[in-house]
Amino acid sequence: MTVEPGAPLWEVFVRSRRGLAHQHVGSLHAADAALALSHARDLFTRRGEGVSIWVVPAAAIHASDPDAKGPNFDPADDKVYRHPTFYQVPEDLQL
């Protein structure tokens, strides 16, 4: 058997027992989605890390432009009022 040189790349997301959201854990090569899931199970959940796996073709992921990092993200830096901790909770507030 020869290694398939063109086997596509898949990004792997695992939902751990502790968390609610799937988190990106790494990537792997596989011929199709079924094999990608099988390999992901072996590569990324062998120490009990997860209860659910997603695999996504790496080609299907569109990333923001690293060169646009400044315009994209810097303006949020000085908007402290967007954090809930910016606001004082009145002492007599009934929760």
Partner: peptide
């Protein structure tokens, strides 16, 4: 094994 991924699978 044919690939790194399969190597891990077999050893698991």
């Amino acid at each position: 094994a044919p690939t790194l991924e399969e190597d891990l699978a077999l050893e698991n």
